[in-house]
Design a protein around this nucleic acid. Structure first.
Length: 697
DNA sequence: CAGCCTCGAGTTCT
DNA sequence: CTCGAGGCTG
């Protein structure tokens, strides 16, 4: 931060003649600098009063120009974690979740998928590790030059909570990496699982009972509760343990394989799970799964399956990830615990798209560590398939140990008092007809904008974690604000900031919570474009497609215009939309339909007056940045999915069909009609070899 | 046109 | 987490 001298607080005296946005940028930089002098280096340069004045100035400007609030604003950083004692940490590499497998077929498919993706010869050995999947909390530990500097929870995968002080109390976690053979890397992120042993859990609950505190439901919750203590000395008194099992960002590689990396961690003083094995095929994987399953009751910690990982790091790298899960790992789950209970009633819920979903109300019953009283029944067909009647005795399980599921009805226990359920053909909330289109499984309410339930669900979706992530705006709050008439559309949410005092005077809301809410709303004004697109709740547009659209159109207006043009048929935009890889006619239709609606148009227009979403970050700069690439034929050295991922990493757009906008056609063996079309349109055609040469440059 | 593979939408509980 | 539907490949 060499700019620091230029940015003295006294150089900022008045708001006049200074554009607000650069000023806020300077303030953010300045406050961050002084923050680090104060906290990090313990060597403040300015007085506390001057520092407070800076923060106050920042707030004053932001209050006057809420639309200009930066996503990295100091007020946001403070306000973003209102209810929590813990700061937020953005993971340098996202902490992924795992896809699941339940039987040998799933494992065989997993292995086959990998072979195809890597285009492996059948003779090439594909080796996996098999290790128990600990039922605890994932943690990422950051070591700089061998010293633990930060610990963060998984959070939503990309942003977690800073729990460094608490993690320092855990004895399994070294404060300092001491490894004699080679010096520790400058930067090393170790990931693993914090857990509590079954015995310690039982003892802790006994103590909780003695002191009259509420017992924990299971070791996992006990570990989570113990870690998330405001007072780290309480964490110290709780017997937490840690298994290391993966790396995050690392400044220099320490091993070519996962197994080698685990050995390295072990030498460094971490505890790695001793049941970890190397396996060469599906049979060996399943054998190790069975072996671990047999040992499960005798282990001192809870596990919920076995994780298989591709051993070679270079292959892991090539395989990459799909959505939120790596392609190179899978969790083979154990059979779920089952329980028996009574189906008391069936209710109908209305989702944001109007979908009517039957939900089972159950006699509460403990299953797998929690008490379950509701379970989804998915749709009409599911009810018929399982022949479910109200009053039935049913077998319940938690699928993947999380979501409750009715496995089957115990028909032998029927006494004739059970009643069948008649699926309604009207929305239970707005009474509009509920229609089930031919061939579809879902019945939907046709009330649209007029349906209260749909409107509420759409608002909830907009503020939800994966969309705009507005903290402190839960279901209850939204309901309340809608009731008060303060919020009708998503744009109204941003105008709540003008009602801070009114909000503060509401029941169970103080000045502080109102302020936090306002801060969280203001922070959302500069959320990524893809979050906004996802938040609109357009049919078939989920997180992945929203990201895709954000990359292509780079602004909400751009997307909207493209859809309008498509509708007017005045341009080739419809074709453009469909030419985007992963967007077909059905998705394009839903997009066009959404933006053709006057109410939607008005709502988006209105929203644009409240937010300034930054366009998505440009991927790496390269010779193919911004180019439109089409792949065809069979590629020999890499699979098509991999080629696509690689092209996107380098900033290219991958399309499925040739158009005048295509820059390169990469033709593998046996390329078909696309080559001819490309030639007609004058598109550059590359062989696989010249493509590889191109991206290397 | 069938058979993948992926994504979206709905859901539980603490 | 599961199911169903959309999109792409061959």
């Amino acid at each position: 931060m060499n700019d620091a001298d230029r940015l003295r607080p006294d150089s900022i005296t008045t708001l006049e003649d200074i554009a607000v946005s650069p000023l806020l940028e300077e303030l953010a930089t300045l406050i961050r600098y002084h923050d680090s002098r104060y906290h990090g280096e313990d060597n403040p340069e300015i007085s506390d009063a001057d520092y407070d004045a800076l923060v106050a100035l920042n707030k004053e400007i932001e209050d006057a120009f809420p639309a200009q609030i930066r996503h990295d604003s100091p007020s946001v950083r403070v306000g973003a974690a209102p209810s929590s004692t813990f700061g937020k940490v953005t993971h340098s590499q996202p902490m992924l979740s795992l896809s699941n497998a339940f039987d040998k077929t799933d494992i065989e498919e997993f292995i086959a998928r990998i072979g195809r993706f890597l285009a492996l010869e059948s003779t090439e050995p594909l080796i996996f590790t098999a290790e128990p999947k600990i039922d605890g909390l994932s943690i990422s530990l950051r070591y700089e030059a061998g010293t633990l500097v930060q610990a963060a929870t998984r959070g939503d995968g990309s942003v977690g909570e800073d729990v460094t002080a608490n993690v320092r109390q855990i004895k399994d976690i070294p404060q300092q990496i001491t490894q004699s053979r080679i010096p520790p890397p400058d930067m090393l992120e170790v990931r693993g699982e914090i857990y509590m042993t079954k015995a310690d859990f039982a003892a802790l609950n006994e103590r909780q009972a003695e002191t009259g505190s509420k017992p924990f439901a299971n070791p996992r919750n006990a570990a989570a509760g113990s870690l998330r203590q405001k007072d780290a000395s309480i964490t110290a008194a709780r017997p937490l343990h840690f298994f290391a099992y993966a790396s995050g960002t690392i400044s220099e590689p320490v091993s070519d394989t996962h197994h080698g990396f685990l050995s390295y961690l072990s030498e460094c003083g971490f505890v790695v799970n001793s049941l970890t094995r190397l396996c060469h095929n599906a049979e060996e994987l399943v054998a190790s799964w069975q072996d671990i399953n047999t040992q499960r009751p005798h282990l001192e910690y809870d596990i919920d399956g076995v994780v298989y990982k591709v051993n070679r790091h270079d292959w892991q790298q090539r395989l990459g990830q799909v959505s939120r899960a790596p392609r190179w790992a899978i969790a083979h789950k154990f059979a779920a615990e089952q329980a028996e209970t009574t189906l008391l009633d069936i209710d109908i819920q209305v989702g944001r798209t109007g979908a009517l979903t039957p939900v089972a109300r159950l006699e509460p019953v403990p299953v797998g560590g929690v008490t379950v009283s509701n379970a989804t029944l998915h749709n009409e067909d599911e009810l018929r398939r399982k022949n479910i009647r109200i009053g039935d005795k049913v077998i319940l399980q938690r699928a993947g140990d999380v979501i409750p599921q009715i496995v089957r009805v115990i028909e032998s226990r029927r006494d004739g008092s059970e009643r069948g359920f008649i699926f309604p053909d009207k929305c239970p909330v707005c009474q509009h007809p509920a229609i089930r289109p031919d061939g579809e499984a879902v019945r939907r309410c046709t009330g649209g904008f007029t349906c209260e339930a749909q409107r509420l669900e759409r608002l909830k979706h907009f503020v939800s974690r994966n969309a705009m992530d507005i903290d402190g705006l839960g279901e209850r709050q939204i309901e309340l604000f809608v009731e008060k008439g303060w919020v009708n559309t998503i744009a109204d949410i941003f105008r709540l900031t003008a009602r801070e005092d009114e909000i503060a005077s509401l029941e169970r809301m103080g000045q502080k919570s109102a302020e936090n809410l306002v801060n969280a709303i203001n922070a959302a004004r500069t959320n990524d474009l893809s979050r906004v697109i996802f938040g609109l709740g357009i049919r078939q547009i989920g997180q992945a497609t929203a990201r895709l659209l954000a990359q292509h159109y780079r602004s909400l207006r751009g997307l909207m215009d493209a859809c309008h043009h498509a509708q007017d048929n005045t341009a080739t935009a419809y074709t453009d939309l469909v030419a985007i890889d992963q967007i077909g006619v059905s998705v394009a239709d839903d997009l066009i339909l959404f933006f053709a609606d006057d109410a939607h148009k008005e709502m988006v227009q209105d929203l644009l007056g409240e937010i300034q979403p930054p366009p998505p970050e440009q991927p790496e700069e390269s010779v193919i940045s911004g180019k439109v690439i089409v792949f065809t034929g069979t590629l020999s050295t890499l699979s098509r999915t991999e080629a696509k991922a690689q092209a996107e990493r380098l900033g290219a757009r991958v399309s499925g069909s040739i158009s005048a906008k295509t820059d390169y056609l990469v033709a593998g063996a046996d390329a078909g009609s696309k080559t001819r079309k490309a030639a007609e349109l004058g598109v550059t055609i590359l062989t696989e070899d010249s493509w590889r040469a191109l991206i290397k440059s």
